[in-house]
Design a protein around this nucleic acid. Structure first.
Lengths: 167, 167
DNA sequence: TGTGAAACCTCAGGAAT
DNA sequence: ATTCCTGAGGTTTCACA
């Protein structure tokens, strides 16, 4: 308990968030540790909730999802139960990949992923704008994704060069 | 060539984007296929660019990244070389996780991930607002992430257009 | 940290459609 | 021609000392 990852744990996480299929043997070789110790550290990082899951990243364009929209939503009423009600509905829409409750000019920011503009229009007409309690919807469309970083910056613990010992 | 994934390939991708550590044996059992056929399909999906990579998803809060900001940027000049210049600079900032070129009211939408408000202020003062050619910067902060979907929805299958290219 | 057995991955060659 | 299976050998995983 009260587990805090050390420098080596940080290196392990950095390797795994770059390529989750790196074997323990490979990690052990790079960090100058035994295979078993790496295995135990990974298991601990998983158990302590530092590593949440392992996923395959798919090519969304090849799978027919070509349009990303960022949509801001402002609600009419903000009573105690109105926000969770909206959030629950949003959770049932597969087109909504991400939903952020925001401060400032609007209440929610949604990332919408669909095949094309036609599909977006359909989503907007039949699902989003049909919800109760909507005051305003604003959509902006992505022309290009110029940066998509999935790896957290673990710069506090990346002395990869120092570990040149062998087994 | 001109490979189009079939129903079984879609199932495999769906399983792997949910848990990249699912073994081929497990996938084979679920789909009623042999281990080797799954192995070959996965290799092909990787080779054809449908599966891009495998990553570990880390817990950003446990790693000290507690503030997400969505920042819109409008440039002063939009000449041929000005946009790539901006994008290149943005790519060197580890705080910027995502950058979208947008239509509409502003030019770029940035997802910024930092430790806290103080770190955001520092990033804004020393990096973002120091860039050339900036006309306007607007920041909104995330109060809560109510939906974070990383898996593509494959249940709908491929769009008909894509399927017809098959053979 | 090391050992070793069980489980798994990988890739021949061959069968079935 | 493609997709699939069987089986052998090398690798990884993971409990135990």
């Amino acid at each position: 308990m009260n587990f805090i990852p050390d420098q080596i744990d940080m290196c392990i996480m950095d390797i795994l968030q770059e390529d989750a299929r790196t074997t323990n043997k490979e990690i052990a070789a790079r960090l100058g540790k035994s295979v078993t110790s790496i295995f135990e550290r990974v298991k601990r990082l998983e158990a302590e909730g530092y590593i949440l899951r392992y996923i395959a990243v798919l090519n969304k364009n090849k799978l027919g999802k070509n349009l990303v929209a960022w949509t801001s939503v402002t609600l009419k009423e903000h009573g105690q139960d109105r926000l969770p009600a909206f959030e629950q509905k949003i959770n049932t829409f597969p087109e909504v990949m991400e939903c952020y409750k925001m401060n400032g000019q609007f209440d929610y920011l949604l990332k919408i992923l669909v095949a094309d503009m036609e599909a977006y229009e359909l989503f907007n007409l039949t699902k989003l704008s049909k919800l109760d309690n909507i005051y305003k919807i604003r959509s902006l469309f992505v022309l290009a994704e110029t940066k998509q970083e999935v790896e957290l910056n673990l710069k506090t613990g990346l002395p990869v060069k120092l570990q040149q010992k062998n087994k």
